[in-house]
Amino acid sequence: MDDAKQRDKSRPTIKDVAVEARVSVGTASAVLNGRANVARETRDHVEAVMKRMGYEPKSAARAMRRNLVSSIGLIVPDLRNSFFSQVAEGVQRGIAGHDILMTLCLSWAESEREEYFAQLLRSQRLDGVVYLSGTGLPSTSLLELTKTGTVVFVDEVLPGVDCPSVCSDNRRGAREVARCVLDAGHTEIAVIEGPRRLWTADQRLSGFREAISSCGLDPDKMRYLLGDYTEKSGYQAAAELFSGEEGNWPTAVICANDQMALGVLDFCGEAGISVPQAVSVTGFDDIAEARRTRPTLTTVSQPGFDMGRAAAHLLLHSIGVRAEPPERCDFDTNVRIRGSVSKPPK
């Protein structure tokens, strides 16, 4: 028996993994291939067993030996925002079992870095790219990349770029979270917008304004401050909002994402402004931190993991690795009502 055959014989099989994890072979295989019909707890358990046993899919081992591993790129603004981390995890799950290597690039929402990574990935002749834009600007290299390779956008639509995308209903989510604030009785409302060049920011602002208008209020009479989706910009906006006489303060601050809402909560905590007794605060994305703030943050949930996995499946289908496209590319959003919203102070 030669060395290669001896190594294959000593490696754990998917059946060995199933026995060790106390699941069926079908379930273990479903986890390996990133299928959606496995409970998260079961999937995490089986993956832990695979890691502990050193399980390596035979297809991946053969591909590595023959140098046939495909490569895709993933460009994201950063991983500090856990929504982007969820998307990245979903992309990785979506390519599991397909002999594909993912290259992660962090752009920090800087146009120069997005241009650099698009140029680099194009020169590497990758099979495709999953792209989360932090700038909303279609760089020259990105446009070239869309011509020579396959690109799938997640949660953004760029002007002049004709590419498939996976998005959630940002407008509806923004409209519904704003209605929570309005239904609580607030009329003195401030909105902290996201970067105006981004499609998501535009959609969310439109949703906020639609909700305000539907309640018989003039959206143009509300106060709007421009943020950049970072916690720092939320903090700075709050400092501006609460710098004058208390009688001129808003009773509610609607933020276009959770990071900025966290900045508002930080400022209020430092300034001794009680949330939600003195001011209500909302966010968007439902990042992990939103459930750990005090009070917990009312926000809009969008399924980052599922969106990332769908983007991976869409990309794999486009490059001929996967026979079927994802079941859906448009995802719902849902309001998570928590402790940061109450009636306005009397």
Rank of each mutant, 00 (worst) to 15 (best):
R65Y: 03
F117Q: 07
D99W: 04
S85H: 06
S82Q: 05
E89L: 14
I75R: 00
V91H: 05
I100N: 09
G136S: 02
R65M: 12
N81W: 02
A118H: 05
W108V: 09
R93W: 01
R66N: 15
L126W: 05
G134M: 13
G136K: 00
S71Q: 14
T103V: 13
I100C: 15
D78E: 13
E114R: 08
E114I: 04
A61N: 14
R66I: 04
L79Q: 10
D78Q: 09
G94V: 02
G97R: 08
A96P: 01
F84I: 12
C105H: 10
D99E: 15
E115L: 00
A88S: 08
D127Y: 03
L126R: 06
I95M: 05
A61S: 15
L68F: 12
E114M: 05
V76N: 07
Y131H: 01
L132W: 00
L74C: 07
G90W: 03
E89P: 01
L137H: 13
D99P: 06
I100S: 13
S107G: 10
R125T: 11
I100Y: 05
P138E: 01
E110H: 12
L74Q: 10
M64A: 14
N81A: 01
S70H: 10
M102P: 02
C105Y: 05
E112G: 08
A96W: 07
V129F: 02
N67W: 06
N67M: 09
S85Y: 07
S70N: 15
A118S: 11
V69F: 15
C105S: 12
S111N: 15
V129K: 00
R122F: 08
T135S: 03
Q86R: 06
Q124N: 13
I100R: 08
E89S: 14
S70L: 13
L132R: 04
V129Y: 01
F117C: 06
Q124M: 14
W108P: 11
H98P: 09
Y131L: 02
E89T: 07
R113C: 03
V129G: 00
V130P: 01
Q119I: 09
A109M: 04
N81D: 03
A109G: 03
L121E: 06
M64G: 13
